[in-house]
Simulated assay, not measured.
Amino acid sequence: MCKSEILCYNKSIVSLLQRMTNLEELALYIFVGQRTCLDGNCLKNDIINHLPRLNKFTFNIRSFIYDLDQADLLSKEYIQDTFKGLGDIQVISCVDYFPKQRTGQCHFYSYPYTLTYYNNITNNFTDGLFKFVREVSLFDEHPFEHEFFIRIARAFPLLENLSMINQTQQKQKLNNNNEHLSIIEYLHLNQLRFIDTHDDYVEQFLVNTNTCLPKNIRLFIHYDSLKRVTNNFT
């Protein structure tokens, strides 16, 4: 298993794996920071074609691209098309662009997903059932609305640790009169982190009756934010 954050993909990962010609099973979980997206062609040309005995390959690969113009970011359809020819391996991909930071990310993984964590989920998250995941982090420059949190609760039924970064105000502001909205339940959540978030998300989880949390949850939040949303703890 290879699990790491890699800055020099070609020099560190590719050169190492290409020397392992007798490798039969490979689990590759990496975060790569570079100027271009990794895709299925990279997997085939850089890794798979050099491992003739490889019969089992699972992966979770995220490329984080710096100094990016949106026009330079490849589409999800293009990325997904590069995985043709991988046999029975089912691949899920997601592409995001963050204009404020001029950065992007391309994430793809073999499905079913067997890791216990899932990081940097955005609104472009592809639904599914992730029964092994216990830890999730959310990040986006676009607002997370109520329906998004419903999707998260359904996709990760055994979620225990949730952290969030999003400074963008919700467009569909909730209030306690929205009885038609589905109640979101996080039955196993024991730790909730608001790392850098708009007050709307604190209200979403701590004030509105449309979200149900377990008792005795550990909360990490800026004091001023908590003071504002609770009206000075009244």
Rank of each mutant, 00 (worst) to 15 (best):
Thr122Ala: 07
Thr116Gln: 14
Asn177His: 05
Thr209Gln: 15
Leu189Trp: 06
Ile184His: 02
Glu135Ala: 13
Phe132Glu: 14
Asn208Ala: 09
Asn120Arg: 12
Leu181Arg: 11
Ile121Ala: 03
Asn124Ser: 13
Ala153Asp: 05
Tyr186Met: 02
Asn190Val: 09
Asp199Ile: 13
Asp196Leu: 12
Leu159Ala: 03
Asp140Gln: 07
Arg134His: 06
Val136Phe: 08
Asn176Ala: 11
Glu179Tyr: 14
Pro143Phe: 02
Asn124Asp: 13
Phe194Val: 01
Asp200Ala: 04
Asn232Pro: 06
Ile195Trp: 01
Arg134Asp: 06
Tyr118Thr: 05
Thr168Pro: 08
His222Thr: 02
Gln167Met: 14
Ser137Ile: 09
Ser182Val: 11
Asn124Met: 08
Leu206Trp: 02
Leu129Lys: 00
Asn231Ile: 08
Phe156His: 00
Leu187Met: 01
Asn190Phe: 07
His188Arg: 09
Asn208Lys: 12
Glu203Lys: 15
Arg228Ile: 10
Glu147His: 08
Gln204Val: 05
Arg193Pro: 00
Phe149Ser: 05
Asn232Asp: 10
Arg154Phe: 06
Asn178Pro: 01
Cys212Ile: 08
Pro143Gly: 09
Lys227Pro: 05
Arg218Val: 01
Ile150Trp: 00
Glu145Ala: 02
His222Gln: 15
Asp224Cys: 11
Leu219Ser: 06
Ile165Asp: 05
Gln167Leu: 15
Lys227Ala: 08
Asn120Phe: 13
Phe130Ala: 03
Ser163Gly: 10
Lys131Pro: 03
Tyr118Gly: 00
Tyr117Met: 12
Phe156Gln: 02
His142Leu: 10
Tyr118Val: 03
Tyr223Met: 11
Gln172Arg: 12
Thr209Met: 13
Phe132Lys: 14
Leu206Asn: 03
Ile195Cys: 13
Phe144Asp: 07
Thr209Ile: 14
Arg151Met: 04
Pro157Ala: 09
His188Trp: 04
Leu159Met: 01
Val229Gly: 01
Phe130Met: 03
Glu160Cys: 05
Pro143Asp: 10
His198Met: 03
Ile217His: 03
Val133Trp: 04
Arg218Pro: 02
Asn175Tyr: 06
Ile221Tyr: 10
Phe205Arg: 05
Ile183Ala: 06
Gln191Gly: 07
Gln204Thr: 12
Leu219Phe: 08
Asn190Tyr: 06
Asn119Gly: 01
Ile150Ala: 00
His146Arg: 09
Leu138Gln: 07
Ala153His: 01
Ala155Tyr: 05
